[in-house]
């Protein structure tokens, strides 16, 4: 474990917590893409499938973190699609998730480290996570604005994988550890946030709201 991965995981936890708090406190999921949250839940379940296959005693923080990610993302989907369904902005959350899931699944079957079920699921989860934020960014571009709290969520969510890139650089240099698939997908994922990062740093930090087109 290195400082970059630690802060990356903390940033990821913060993003999940911020979103849950926003929905729970405002009792509304306006401005939140349910599809993105569904895709994240699929990512966690397919990536941590080993938790289900053979029960593991919660002996280390990693297992606990995996369970937190899975349960929090499923709970977030429950809030969006059931509890606060009336506030779900289905009309603007209109990006076709199939256009993200099918190519990720196809690519996972073509480009992977080992052609076995667990490895393919893990690879699918990595590819899907890289593009899972697109429905959320699409929704913001359709509505033309993002609530400040949602911007903080996106900043934390984007920072998590950006910090992981620093973690991979660190591990390459000190542990000669390389995972090309995760690195390439992580770079693509972080690049998708660049436009938002620019808006966040130039606007939200100064207390303004993000309004598109910028």
């Amino acid at each position: 474990m290195n400082i970059f991965r630690l802060f990356g995981d903390l940033s990821h936890l913060a993003a999940i917590a911020i979103l849950l708090l926003k929905i729970w406190k405002t009792r509304s999921c306006a401005g939140v893409s349910g599809k993105t949250q569904l895709l994240f839940a699929v990512c966690f379940i397919t990536r941590y499938i080993d938790l289900f296959l053979h029960f593991v005693s919660l002996y280390n923080t990693e297992k606990v973190m995996k369970l937190i990610y899975i349960s929090a993302s499923v709970f977030t989907c429950y809030l969006i699609f059931f509890k606060f369904k009336a506030t779900y902005d289905g009309n603007h959350d209109s990006m076709r998730a199939e256009f993200l899931i099918v190519p990720a699944a196809g690519l996972a079957c073509l480009i992977n480290t080992k052609f076995d079920a667990i490895e393919i699921l893990w690879t699918f989860s990595i590819y899907l996570e890289a593009v899972a934020i697109l429905p959320q960014l699409f929704l913001i571009s359709k509505t033309g604005e993002a609530e400040t709290i949602t911007s903080h969520y996106l900043f934390a969510q984007g920072s998590y994988r950006a910090l992981y890139i620093l973690n991979w650089i660190y591990r390459y240099h000190y542990e000669s550890h390389v995972d090309t698939i995760a690195i390439v997908a992580g770079v693509v994922q972080t690049i998708l946030y660049c436009d938002f990062f620019y808006l966040y740093i130039t606007k939200v930090v100064k207390g303004q709201k993000i309004v598109l087109p910028a």
């Binding site: 990821h12 893990w122 992981y164 973690n167 000669s176 550890h177 995972d179």
Partner: peptide
Amino acid sequence: KLNVNSKDEL
């Protein structure tokens, strides 16, 4: 040899 993708990350 670079040890490739040991699944030790979240």
